[in-house]
Simulated assay, not measured.
Amino acid sequence: MTTSSKEPAPVRTAEPAGRPQRIHGLDALRGGALLLGIVLHACVPFIATQSWFFHDRYTSVGLAETNFVIHSFRMVLFMTLAGYFGALMLDRRGARRYVGDRAKRVLLPMFAFWPVAVFPLGLLALMFASTRPGTAQPEVTDPLVMFGPGQLWFLLVLMECIVITVAVRALLIRFIGRERTSAFSERMATLFSSRAGVLVASVPYTVVVLIQGRPMSGIIEPATIVPEVAPLVGYLGAFAVGWALRRRSDALAGISRDWAAYLTVGAISLSIMLIAQGQVPLPMGAALVALGGWCVTYGLIGVCVRFLSRPRPAIRYLADASYWMYLMHLPIVVAIGMSLADLNLPVAVKLSITLIGSSAMLLLTYQLAVRCTPLGAWLNGHRHPWKSAERGA
């Protein structure tokens, strides 16, 4: 991979007196990964081969390809950033306060939001099927599936990654000492920020796809609250990469030097899979999807570190709103999509209406009910005063 002639300055993670410095590029990227999930779910009704709550009368090959690309890297990117910010928070607060904060803001929302964000989806699917006699609905009798985490599965997997990582760190400190643990972490950060690091990072992803056997599906999420080894391995690997990168102050700057090369390799790898329609040997398909997903992850981190280092009010507002938007988006997206399913409108028009309508509703509810309320303090860790919220809006 080529190196740019302009050397980016190392990312500063030092904390000025009074308040921790916000890493604006990564913060925006984390919000973008969540918002991409809304785009992904809005596309699914137009993909005939994918199981969903309903299907539109029209299908789109282009949206199926878009869905594949987004799914190949989105949650890997999110878990990597979660690991990076997790290590940062642990350094500031200590392990006990870090785990307690994550239990409050990650695990508890999964249970608290399930009745309003997941349960209505089954009712919407039944209503849609009842108006179309020929529509078949699969019977679900397993209670674990009926009361599964739905789209909130990532919160459970993230909490599992947090607990495992903190436990392993504690064991290493206990048996080999704090200094050796820190030295090991720095060596891993050096490895993952090198050009070979993306290859090492892609190994767990490759193994998971080999186990699951479906390269075009990327890492398949768990369907119940019972931990599944395959997705946990894939996302724990991503979390560990982010955690390690925090150990060197210049690690992200090293990645940002080659952002264009990473994105190019990622685009080539994923394009091969799309051109071949997944009809390649499983080991090759697993390696291509994993390499493509990780190269896009590294490339996007590099772009945001290099070009989004300064605060931008609109981007910061969306980053703050993204958690609420993702938690609550799916019933709204599904309801709007169902209302458009039988209309004789182009796919692009239906998709635009779904995205614009749902985003407007989610942003409005965030502004009025979340941003300046105790709910916002719970989800985002801080509560914005009304005056600053009005300026942001």
Rank of each mutant, 00 (worst) to 15 (best):
C304L: 13
A28V: 12
A238T: 10
P385W: 12
E7I: 15
R97V: 11
G285Q: 02
L210R: 02
M325Y: 01
A253K: 07
R187M: 05
P8E: 10
A95D: 15
F239G: 05
L363A: 07
S269N: 12
S352A: 15
A360W: 14
Y58H: 03
W294S: 05
V349M: 14
S249G: 13
V370C: 13
V296P: 03
I164Q: 06
D250Q: 13
R174S: 00
F128H: 11
V265S: 06
T181A: 03
V200E: 01
L368N: 08
P138S: 11
W386N: 07
R74W: 12
R391E: 12
L152F: 03
A267T: 14
Y298A: 00
V106E: 02
M188W: 09
T373H: 13
R257W: 00
M159C: 05
L77P: 12
W294F: 15
M273S: 04
L291A: 09
I268A: 13
V334P: 11
R316K: 10
G148C: 01
T354E: 13
D56F: 08
A112E: 00
P143R: 00
G177W: 06
R246E: 07
R306T: 04
L155W: 01
V157D: 08
R22S: 02
N380C: 10
T131C: 05
I336H: 08
F46Y: 03
L343K: 13
R96C: 11
V44N: 01
V334I: 14
A103T: 07
G37E: 10
T131F: 03
Q212L: 02
S309P: 02
I220G: 01
G100R: 07
I275L: 15
G392K: 12
L245R: 03
R169L: 02
G357D: 12
M1Q: 09
V118A: 04
E179C: 02
L144I: 11
P20E: 03
A244P: 08
E221N: 11
I268W: 05
P311V: 04
Q277H: 14
V334H: 10
R310H: 10
L318P: 06
V347G: 04
I315E: 08
P109T: 06
E15F: 07
L144Q: 14
G31D: 07
F128K: 06
F53W: 08
V233Q: 00
I353M: 11
K387R: 15
V116Q: 06
R246H: 11
V305L: 11
P313R: 05
A112I: 00
I164M: 03
I211C: 00
L288W: 04
P109D: 01
Q367G: 11
G37V: 01
G242A: 13
V118M: 06
P8H: 08
P346Y: 02
Y235V: 01
G25F: 05
W324F: 14
A42D: 08
V370L: 08
P346T: 04
D101F: 11
G122Q: 06
C161H: 09
V11Y: 01
L88I: 14
V140W: 13
E160G: 05
Y84D: 03
T59K: 00
L124A: 09
L355T: 07
G302V: 14
P385G: 02
L126I: 04
V163L: 00
A14M: 04
V69P: 09
Q137V: 15
E15K: 10
N67H: 12
G234H: 05
V280T: 11
V166G: 04
G37P: 06
R92F: 07
I162Y: 11
P149G: 09
R97Y: 08
G25E: 08
A87K: 15
